[in-house]
Amino acid sequence: MALWRRVKNIFFGIAIGHTVTNTFGTVARVDGISMQPTLNPTLSTSSDMVFLSYLPVRFDSIKRGDLIVAISPRNPNEIIVKRVIGLEGDVVKLKRKQDDSMRKVVPKGYYWIEGDHKGHSYDSTSFGPISKGLVIAKVPAIVWPPSRWQLIQSEVHK
């Protein structure tokens, strides 16, 4: 009987933990160089762990300049972290070469996302704007390693 109660408690504990992490957020490791210098500033040291917050996506409060995590539109098993450059209705300037630039309007229901490491990032410049439904979380802070513990600034750069 005591064993059965223990199994039941573990079962409920898993369920509660799962629900809480699913509602509020989890911690995830970042791989790759596409977000340098914000995340993973040096490759030699261990990669950063970031906190993923699910609530801003649920309440639709993503702003320009926020760091977000989304499912890659080209590979559903891959998850990418990028910065929101344009919201719906914004005009984005695409720079191909020095003098050749294109203007694009972000359609309704879409975001324009780009990595901070220009030219080394697989982002909206190659696959176009992504649908809002693909965005799963906002990244408000770096939590590990302790020396890099900080909140992530929401910045809009040219």
Partner: peptide
Amino acid sequence: FNSINNGDLVIAKSPLDD
């Protein structure tokens, strides 16, 4: 498990309105 096949009925989020 990524096992969506031709002819399946699926529910998806609308790309235009999440």
